[in-house]
Design a protein around this nucleic acid. Structure first.
Lengths: 225, 225
DNA sequence: CGGCCACTTGAAAACCTTCAACCTATGTGG
DNA sequence: CCACATAGGTTGAAGGTTTTCAAGTGGCCG
């Protein structure tokens, strides 16, 4: 995002606006968003580590504007697992309208900004058709629509698939080639079902195989696919 | 499902009807479905092994009436993986409206029946609000909304979680306690990311631990949770 | 009856996790 | 500005789990 845009968006924080008037509307809703289709309110920026929603909390729906959110669920035994990522343009919290409460905790993995979507009385039949249709299509397109396709792959391939999936979803517009992963090895491991040490070693193997170059959280995609 | 209902539904196969007039409407849409909310057409019954949709095929949306569908994706390397199950009341094919084509193949794991949902021009803004809202809520409630929570668990726990999840989703109305799993060990393994042999051994362990009783595809839930 | 497919079992090899130690970067307080 | 504390990252070795391979069983259908 350009600085000018960021500045302008900060200006409208906490103001309810029509998404059609947002300079970043294309990122969230695609090419042409007609007026009055979606209303949203830019929330105050989230620092790294800040929580947007809490598992069990009240239903609410957000769309990520910038940054990256990590979704975690607390298991009955007290442990936590990462169950998803949300990148700019993706929805957070939709599941809560089906369950009556938030099904996961969402925490900023890097400094992030989100917009709260105004969904008039979802569940009572009062919402606007065009908005619902947008949401439905977005929902159908969400990342985890089916079981993790990497289940059962060896650790190296899982990590490779994760990185590739991340780069495709984060619209890294080419310029930012050496990009920065917002997640710790532990979080990646939790998401993929691997120990953090295994993630480290897998990244090492991928580096040695020239499939990518890693140093800390900085990653550059490397020649051989 | 009672015989009388099955007969009646067969009677309306290939006839477009209002779901509100369907005797099984509650299973799909919950308690009260107002008239004219959803229109559907009962498709000819699917025998075990029959394919409902093909990966890459034209967008279409179904709701499972009876039976069980297995969803598979073909990977670039030619192999196939099971990425989901669909049980009565669940949607099949919704993702296709976001992608423009079907993202998985759906095959009947047991004799099944489905209804094709009439979604007026989804993607063009002409659909009815109440229908969209129903679909959105259903979509938000779908099983694989987040990464598989069993990733990283030991094989025995994965299989146990799978069985439990299955029994909860299949509305086994108590009477059918020794129920029949419609999937082969290989399919379960593919879904969970385990080798078929590992599924066999995990089921063995669960049996010995009295957590369930298995013989072939017949399963009875056993005392200790 | 024969063939096929799903299922089962055993043993060896491969893989991943665990544990423990150590390293590096970052930020804080003195 | 340095010393220290902390969190994340890295590495090695041991042990456990899972996969793989191989062989054998059981049921179902032509």
């Amino acid at each position: 995002m350009h600085t000018s845009e960021r500045t302008r968006l900060r200006g409208v924080a906490n103001t309810e606006t029509d998404c059609a008037s947002c300079p970043a509307s294309r990122r969230c809703w695609g090419e042409a968003l007609p007026n009055e289709t979606v209303h949203a309110r830019r929330e105050p920026p989230l620092e790294r580590g800040a929580r947007l929603i809490e598992q069990g909390g009240a239903p609410a729906l957000f769309i990520v504007a910038t940054g990256c959110l990590v979704l975690r669920v607390g298991l009955p035994d007290g442990s936590q697992r990462v169950v998803g990522l949300r990148l700019p343009g993706e929805l957070v919290g939709l599941e809560s309208y089906a369950r009556g409460e938030q099904t996961y905790t969402a925490q900023a993995a890097s400094p992030s900004a989100v917009c709260r979507l105004r969904v008039p009385a979802l569940g009572t039949g009062a919402a606007h058709g065009a908005l619902l249709e947008r949401l439905l299509l977005k929902s159908a397109a969400q990342p985890e629509r089916a079981a993790a396709p990497w289940a059962g792959l060896p650790a190296v391939e899982r990590v490779a698939a994760f990185i590739e999936n991340y780069t495709q979803r984060a619209q890294l517009s080419g310029r930012e080639d050496p990009f920065k992963l917002p997640l710790t090895r532990a979080d990646i491991g939790s998401y993929l079902g691997l120990a953090p040490e295994t993630v480290v070693r897998a990244l090492g193997h991928l580096s040695q195989a020239q499939r990518l170059a890693v140093r800390g959280r900085t990653v550059r995609l490397g020649g051989a696919v």
